[in-house]
Design a binder for these strands. Structure first.
Lengths: 330, 330
DNA sequence: CTGTTAGCGCCTTCAT
DNA sequence: ATGAAGGCGCTAACAG
């Protein structure tokens, strides 16, 4: 494998000159550049990214850490991150956190193989994030709060979203509204639930714990929770699923029991994933500003890298998306 | 930022000893390990991944290059790649090729920032792949053939899939079957079309060029192509879309014109993307063995890295998936 | 078991 | 405009 040294030798110049020529630094005559480029070409020279990174103590790339690369990802989020990164001349890599603190993600975090990271992966421990984030290594966390002063938090206003969805169903005349929760350790779930509770309270509807059913954010979980609810007889008028995946599982469970949505029971979800528009009936849900969240995260990384002062937490508003899965009760 | 030198000094040992201790190499007494670890802890030492990579001329990670991180990805493919990579103790990163030969993907390829790469991204030029692949840098290409002896090709038998889907429709009694193509530069499309043609021929059905309509693999493109076909009056009995995305666009176009699928017209797609199961009617399509393709790609990388001899091209069979979008004509 | 040392390949100051 | 030289931080002989 040819190195810059080989190129320099073949071109008959010093290494430094070759480096300047190769990197387009305005310090060498065009004749020399020519020679160097030609030599590089002939030797099929390729610069070593790792050596370059080491020397410059900078990789010019940021990492997006997801709990599962093959997961149902928020493509809008990724798009926001990708475009913001590219428009700043940085590169982006995505890595998975399967394996938790000994995953690829954790290796990139711990060994600072990138200049900054955006984390959307519960299975990366907060300790790891705290231990990794540092002045020259900002980390933006999207799914929780974290202590380190170098780790910022961009969140979506889940509580507001939960409130609006619930209120909408109340306004449509529903009085008993179940809540199918996400996993209990999920901050997002917690907030959505609080919004739900608040809406109930503001409309003088009593909260009944029997209407809170445990789910886990998966389609399968939503399906099971719904089956269970149906088995208990006595259905609520409406059900608010803590995310769309579960709501879609629920739709399936209702269909299997010949319960029509929304005629027999109304349902709403949260997230506005792509599928939601295509299921039957199209799902009423709460859209998260994912693109914006992604773009903001990247923006913050660059601000921190530039040494600018930034807030520690950002809170983005949600949008309510009305489709056909909730009916108006006369 | 503390380096290994600092750790060694504080622990009162030589750097090599610190290195051994830190890397768990069986060469130092446990007392020394203790000391070193403690010093590292106190200094909040983090090894520099880039320095380590440079020294070992090896990153222990492989890259999966996709044309768009936020795209409608084959999650099964990613899962296959991910699991195979992890089970070999390697790391995986995904990077995008938006920007073509000056994208993040190309930087990783050109600068050999990883030990091997899997490419599923038409907008990375074959020249770039040829120029990057080398003995110690295997590249597996999933979407085309490429010259370099260090770049292998794992492909799905698109022709067979196209043949089976077409034959299925013929067997269901359809005589006029349109083909909505993908972009013309797509090898996959080409092969699917050949399968279609062959099935027609084998069943003595004449191919009529009016039944070949141009699409581009996007939902929007399928929608437009279908609209156009409808506008021309005189519909075929069935239509074979070169991929599911287009078929779904087509479904929408038919629905808008009150044409019922499959009662009025039958449709089949290709890919078996996740959505296909959920659209109305569920789409009959051809499943690609994506998980297997991903896992095989990784497997090949390791074989090449180990200096083993491998075939240059692999061809995986498809599965036909019967759902409800094709009806039997009596 | 521990220490010394020579680079990995590149960038960049400094001198020419 | 070009060259010489010193590391970036780490690993792995090699010597003791």
């Amino acid at each position: 494998m040819a190195t810059i040294k080989d190129v320099a030798k073949r071109a008959g110049v010093a290494v430094s000159t070759a480096s300047y020529a190769l990197n387009g630094i305005n310090k060498v005559s065009s004749a020399t550049i020519e020679k160097v480029l030609k030599a590089a070409q002939e030797l099929n020279y390729k610069k070593s990214g790792t050596a370059s990174d080491l020397k410059r103590t900078k990789t010019n790339t940021i990492a997006l850490i997801l709990s599962d690369l093959s997961g149902p990802y928020f493509s809008e989020l990724i798009k926001g991150v990708q475009e913001a990164t590219a428009s700043n001349g940085y590169d982006l890599i995505a890595c998975s956190s399967v394996g938790g603190d000994k995953s690829t993600a954790s290796k990139f975090l711990k060994e600072k193989r990138v200049d900054g990271a955006i984390v959307l992966a519960q299975n990366i421990s907060s300790e790891l994030i705290n231990a990794s984030a540092r002045e020259d290594f900002p980390v933006i966390v999207l799914d929780r709060k974290v202590d380190s002063p170098y780790a910022l938090h961009v969140k979506v206003n889940n509580r507001q979203g939960g409130y609006e969805a619930t209120q909408y169903m109340i306004n449509k005349g529903h009085r008993t509204i179940a809540y199918i929760s996400g996993p209990l350790n999920s901050h997002d779930n917690e907030e959505r639930f609080k919004g739900y509770l608040q809406a109930l309270e503001d409309h003088d509807l009593p909260y009944q714990s029997r209407w809170k059913i445990s789910g886990d954010f998966t389609r399968e979980g939503g399906y099971r929770a719904t089956k269970m609810m149906i088995a208990q007889q006595n259905l609520p008028e409406a059900v608010f699923y803590a995310n769309d995946e579960m709501a879609i599982g629920g739709l399936q469970a209702f269909a299997e029991k010949n319960l029509k949505v929304p005629e027999d029971i109304s349902v709403a979800g949260f997230d506005d994933i792509q599928l939601s528009e295509y299921v039957n009936p199209p799902l009423t849900t709460v859209r998260q500003p994912k693109y914006e969240a992604g773009a903001l995260a990247v923006h913050l990384i660059f601000q921190m890298l530039a040494g600018e002062k930034v807030e520690k937490t950002y809170n983005l508003p949600t949008d309510f998306v009305e489709r056909l899965s909730v009916r108006a009760k006369k």
